[in-house]
């Protein structure tokens, strides 16, 4: 089985991709969060503009940039702007 990360998509990101959860193939050595975001945007064109205003979460921690490496087995979440209340 190829190396994969779990991608969680919420709210408008889920609607744009048509699913809330993806098992996304990645190289065995992983890839940068930036590359992952780019590949998701290429696969789901409607998701690309949503991700421009989204925050990203890697294994439960908010990313402050996209340089972090995402490795097989990681969980990567896309958070569009929040709207509770």
């Amino acid at each position: 089985m190829s190396a994969r990360v779990t991608v969680l998509l919420f709210a408008t990101a889920r609607q744009a991709a048509g699913t809330g959860r993806l098992r996304w193939p990645v190289p065995p050595a992983g890839l940068s969060a930036r590359s992952l975001v780019r590949s998701l945007g290429e696969r789901f064109p409607k998701l690309e503009p949503v991700m421009r205003t989204s925050r990203f979460v890697l294994n439960g921690s908010y990313l402050t940039g996209l340089a972090r490496r995402v490795r097989p087995g990681d969980e990567f979440a896309v958070h569009p702007p929040y709207g509770g209340g």
Binding site: F10, A11, T12, H79, P80, Y82, G83, G84, G85
Partner: peptide, 14 residues
């Protein structure tokens, strides 16, 4: 509490 909840807690409504 309510202002921060709306701004910082990952909850969404449709």
């Amino acid at each position: 509490l309510i202002e921060q909840l709306k701004a910082t807690v990952p909850i969404w409504k449709g």
